[in-house]
């Protein structure tokens, strides 16, 4: 797996966006495109050409799973790995999300100090 530099990050909660931005840009050194909705992500994804898609599950409008499905239909993104970040972490939910093609499901609340490291390890091990 090529090194991850650019992450397309989709999250509707502004507060969580702020924390994830610090965790991934300042601490992790990634370049982030932050989108507040699935629709916004679909509009920006191709031009941004991410190495990884990191997305929330429950969002108004099109939700995380629908967004991922739509993103994977874009030819240039179909092989880009995706990770869900969600507060719904019951075993069945995690299994369901993985079955949609995500390489990992990270539970919220997450530790911002180790988030970037977790993502790097996950991508390397996948």
């Amino acid at each position: 797996m090529a090194e991850i530099k650019k992450i397309l990050y989709i999250e509707d909660e502004v507060d969580i966006q702020t924390i994830a931005k610090i965790a991934l840009e300042d601490i992790g050194g990634f370049k982030l495109e932050v989108c507040s909705s699935g629709e916004e992500a679909l509009a920006k994804a191709e031009a941004f050409a991410p190495d990884l898609i990191l997305l929330d599950v429950m969002m108004p409008g099109i939700d995380g799973p629908q967004t991922l499905e739509a993103l994977q239909k874009i030819a240039s993104l179909k092989d880009v790995p995706a990770i869900f970040m969600t507060a719904k972490v019951q075993t069945q939910e995690v299994q369901h999300l993985k079955s949609l093609g995500a390489i990992e499901v990270i539970a919220k609340p997450f530790d911002p100090m180790s988030l970037a490291q977790t993502i790097r390890e996950t991508v390397n091990n996948s």
Partner: peptide, 12 residues
Amino acid sequence: TPLTSISGSLNL
């Protein structure tokens, strides 16, 4: 969801 923001901020 709010706890993610609270504990995340505090951790930072």
